[in-house]
Design a protein around this nucleic acid. Structure first.
Lengths: 143, 143
DNA sequence: TTCGTTAATAATAACCATTCCTGAAAAAAG
DNA sequence: CTTTTTTCAGGAATGGTTATTATTAACGAA
């Protein structure tokens, strides 16, 4: 059985004109396995376990392509580095300002809000993402 | 007449324990004059016109302090560098992905949405900002 | 298939926004 | 005024990301 994700991936590559190389697939696989929100460096390390010859620059380029065709999403929290996330169900991520732990926030409908943005600007809204920061329960106990 | 902003500024400095130095004031003034959303470098250049001896590092440190005490807001768009904004009325900024022009989007109530976030996560939400990107009318005509 | 063309990769150097470090200066406290 | 603490200027260092270049792989046409 071919997964939903698998078909979506092939379709998006086909439409974009980019080729689905083994490196790009490896980056996608790494993001799928790694449940968290890895940085480019972390993705690089994960990919390297399978294929030691891959270069960090290739991972950056792959992440950029995957984001462009909408398979993944880049989260620009106030701290560097940028972290990446599979672009699956609509959800929001909150990041602990102390320990960096990332959790998802479900059940908050953002799409209505986003569409109302479009009604209030002459710009063509291409991307509206929510960057949420907070303190996780564990870190709250410590302080 | 002492402006609202002036009083707010003094109050926030008093409460924070930081000293209101001429450099920090100059950075705040630069942000007030510069209607756009300047980068640290741009703020540095503006400040330097008045006081050529100021260092770039000082501007970074001042921006960091001003953000910490809530006088300004840092906008982390997907493109570096970080851009800064006076923290006045609640509003959202949209940034053109092509030319970088920034415009405000009014009349979209975000606070209700943000407070609902808190109900859906065990994290203590400290900051929720909206990062919106799009294409401005001028750039849309060109393409 | 084979040739020619284009796209993608590996390796590494370069870039640049930001942070760190040091001694000097200024401000606050006593 | 003296001591203590904070802030600053100048510059070096850091680190995430991008650019460069030669090589390799994928694609298309004959």
């Amino acid at each position: 059985m071919v997964s939903m994700l698998e078909r979506d991936m092939r379709e998006k590559f086909r439409r974009s004109g980019y080729t689905l190389t083994s490196q790009r697939r490896a980056v996608l696989d790494a993001l799928r396995d790694c449940k968290g929100h890895p940085s480019a460096e972390e993705v690089y390390l994960a990919v390297k376990k399978r294929n030691p010859r891959v270069a960090l620059g290739t991972v950056y380029q792959a992440l950029s392509v995957l984001e462009e065709i909408g398979l993944i999403e880049a989260k620009h929290w106030s701290e560097t580095p940028v972290r990446y996330d599979l672009n699956t169900e609509p959800h929001h991520d909150i990041r602990c300002a102390k320990c960096g732990a990332v959790a998802e926030i479900p059940g908050v409908e953002f799409e209505d809000f986003a569409s109302r943005l479009q009604e209030n600007t002459p710009y063509e809204v291409t991307n509206a993402s929510l960057v949420i920061e907070g303190v996780c329960p564990a870190c709250r106990l410590e302080s």
